[in-house]
Amino acid sequence: MRTILNIIWLVFAGFWLAVGYAVAGVICCILIITIPFGIASFRIANYVLWPFGREVVKRPTAGVISGIGNVIWFIVAGWWLAIGHIITSIPLFISIIGIPMGWANLKLIPISMTPLGREIVTTHEPFAS
């Protein structure tokens, strides 16, 4: 089931979201001081491609620097990304087949708001949250 949902997600939403996050990552890596944000953008792009069967957890070794970086990220981009994910999930919830896609879109909100100090892990739940 996860594979089918991931393929549908990839075709209808995941590819374009991943391209957007990857472009943001490239721009952040070009501007040398924002390289940590670029790496975080690439991590999000990876997660966006195949979200079902994976989840985001806080890395226990994340320190104060990750927290400060997350505050900067949230102010500059995080809340805009969260609003975008909420707005794009609403039409997905209208159709029966779109409900899992809407949940996947909402599942992206925590990592899009605070990406530093997090890692992506595999889960055995079919609709991992």
Rank of each mutant, 00 (worst) to 15 (best):
L10K: 04
V11Y: 06
F12I: 06
A13P: 08
A13V: 13
A13H: 11
G14S: 01
G14L: 02
G14I: 05
F15I: 14
F15M: 09
F15A: 08
W16A: 11
W16K: 03
L17I: 14
L17M: 11
A18W: 04
A18Q: 02
G20D: 02
G20S: 01
A22R: 15
A22C: 08
V23H: 13
A24R: 07
G25C: 07
V26D: 10
V26H: 05
V26N: 12
I27Q: 12
I27R: 13
I27E: 13
C28E: 03
C29L: 14
C29S: 01
I30M: 06
L31P: 06
I33K: 00
I33S: 05
I35V: 11
I35R: 01
I35C: 00
P36N: 03
P36L: 06
P36A: 01
F37N: 10
F37Y: 04
F37Q: 13
F37T: 03
F37S: 13
F37E: 15
I39G: 12
I39M: 06
I39S: 03
I39N: 02
S41N: 15
S41G: 10
S41Q: 14
S41R: 13
R43D: 04
R43C: 09
N46L: 14
Y47L: 02
L49V: 07
W50Q: 00
W50L: 00
W50A: 00
W50P: 01
P51T: 01
F52A: 00
G53T: 03
E55V: 10
E55P: 15
E55M: 14
V56G: 06
V57T: 08
K58A: 11
R59H: 15
T61S: 14
T61A: 11
A62L: 10
A62I: 09
A62Q: 12
V64Q: 15
V64D: 12
I65V: 15
I65R: 15
I65F: 15
I65S: 15
S66Y: 10
S66G: 11
G67H: 09
G67C: 07
G67Q: 04
I68T: 00
N70W: 03
N70G: 02
V71E: 12
I72A: 04
I72H: 05
W73C: 01
